[in-house]
Amino acid sequence: MKREPIAPGVLRVHDLNARQLLRGGILEGANQPAELKGADVESAELERYVGERVLTTTLEKTVAWARSNSFFPLAFGLACCAMEQFQAAGPRMDIARFGFEAFRASPRQADLIILAGRVSIKMAPIIRRLYDQMLEPKWAISMGACCSSMGVFNNYALVPSDKFMPIDVHVPGCPPRPEGLMHGILKLRKMVQDDPDMGWRERYGAVGTEEAPSGA
């Protein structure tokens, strides 16, 4: 079913009207609700009554809200940045406040991979494999200078992470402090809430690689 988008202002008016009804007040520009008179509810009245009591939203929005508030990061550290990543889950920063604390040991259960450290060309295929094993929807954060621009290790042994997998957020720093990583994760949360798939399939030419194609 195709849903027409509802303007945010309309939702706001519905919400306020519903509150007014619950208080037993009188709606502006409308008659007193039927149930307050003790009369039978007419069908048109009923529809209005329900419309003003039920908060409506789009399914995509709800799903994106739920997803973005409970990332399951992969328990995966590459180098020194991993220490800061552990700290982000520790008591001082405590990413559990936002629901990101469930580090998963298996890529099958994770939907966020944080590349914390430098990626050698020998490690790159392994990381790509882990990323491919993760279930969709999935996101990736490149943490630290090394895996974004190879930082101080810009030499024969390393490869930037953008070369072999799509990255959604780059967190700069060498290493980034835990609050830096948290800022990156919150940025990602905002991105997921605004635009769930962020068009990464189109950006990376990955159309047709869906695990459950919409036509099937």
Partner: peptide
Amino acid sequence: ILMPEDYEGHPQRRDFPVGGEPVLF
């Protein structure tokens, strides 16, 4: 032991290029 099996050259020799990627800042 350190580099991939199909790597060409011996990177710690002094005449081996440092390598790396040009990074656009």
